[in-house]
Design a protein around this nucleic acid. Sequence first.
DNA 1: AAGTTAAAGAAAATCTATTTTTTGTCAAAA
DNA 2: TTTTGACAAAAAATAGATTTTCTTTAACTT
Lengths: 236, 236
Amino acid sequence: MISTGEKPAMSASKTAGVYTELREDLLNGVYQPGSKLMIDALATRFRVSPSAVREALSRLTSERLVVAMPQKGFTVATVSQEDLDDLTQVRIEIETRCLRRSIELGDIEWEAALLASWHRLCHAGASPLGRAHPDWERLHAQFHDDLVAACDSPWWLRLRHELYIQAERYRRMVRSEADTKRDIEAEHRAILDRTMARDADGAVAALSRHLSQTADHVRRTGLTELLARADRADAI
Amino acid sequence: MISTGEKPAMSASKTAGVYTELREDLLNGVYQPGSKLMIDALATRFRVSPSAVREALSRLTSERLVVAMPQKGFTVATVSQEDLDDLTQVRIEIETRCLRRSIELGDIEWEAALLASWHRLCHAGASPLGRAHPDWERLHAQFHDDLVAACDSPWWLRLRHELYIQAERYRRMVRSEADTKRDIEAEHRAILDRTMARDADGAVAALSRHLSQTADHVRRTGLTELLARADRADAI
DNA sequence: AAGTTAAAGAAAATCTATTTTTTGTCAAAA
DNA sequence: TTTTGACAAAAAATAGATTTTCTTTAACTT
């Protein structure tokens, strides 16, 4: 909706800048789920007026990253085990539907772009920083986008994107943990392999496993602890 | 997201009031799709400050009823034949999935509420004003909500609701036309009948037909003319 | 004549200040 | 001891003014 441009430091508008930074913080779990987002405090922090913060927060409700309560202000969207389970299940259905369609319709250009995205992702993952690499999140999103890019239904893709963002929140919460156990690279390779072979059933199975295992990882690694911490609903 | 309360005239906040009224207008096709929504003009019209209008518009982007363009303001979401077709297809899949689950899980209370909603809807439809009855839209939404109310997946229900709103936009555009040809009552009765009989396949088929025929009706009755009119992209 | 640039007007974005609402606290009464 | 009410502090909501950005128009150059 809002183009951030190449330079995150210099946005098109104040609101856009606050929106981008806040969104990043929210995805990275900087704010405790359920905590209050106080407008004045954020305005001071970002050196802008409360109006700009209000609008940024309003826009973030579109993505369900924050929720607005009339006369009560804004709070960070909450997380829960049930929500993660439900989200994962729905996501698998929608992602795989898009993937099937993409495999059905994709041409050589689609294959080329997907292969390129996969290569970039591998490279970022292989770097010293591993998945903490600042670009890794972006490249990962790009790979999953390109996977379904040949799907011809804007609505399915829109819904897929919505759910991807929600899932990313959960995933990033435990990103800092040492999750080197899983071989995410291998999972991506399997998805790519089956997709390029136009093996729809195989690709769908690989993607489903990938999404399930990501959810499992979040579940086991960090959610319990995170929910415990959420008791102290401290603001900013 | 924002509770409108019983009295639409007296909302919780100015923003909420503007939001509610604008939303109603947008759904009713008061503004031409694609036209500009000028903040000052709306602020004057609703007797509130521009800030309140901005925030209301920001929130309406959540539902994709308006789109925001940085430094350009807000415009009414556009419509198209392709969008309607895609929307309808996705909607059928999601609505029927929710319905299957609802039929599987629904208890007697769910049946009772559904039957009550259907009765109210029938009564409104039978009144002199027919479907132009101001309450008809509300009761219709309630019936379709109650139909899937026993589905236990919040995410599927959320996505269903999103698409319902989008479809409602299209439907209301041609509401004023004389569409007495179709027997909508019969379609609703068929859905209700198959659902209460716990005939999942039959209910899904009836619901699919209902949604398809609604889209067909929009397609044939008014979309062409509407798109033609949309050439004059006049503001407010 | 076509294209480019400059200036003026309009509209969006933003800020500061004010009003309204909520929330937390403390004291008094049951 | 618990509850109730009022008061004070904090935060949200709103208005109005200001700054910035875009768009249109008209003059000017090629």
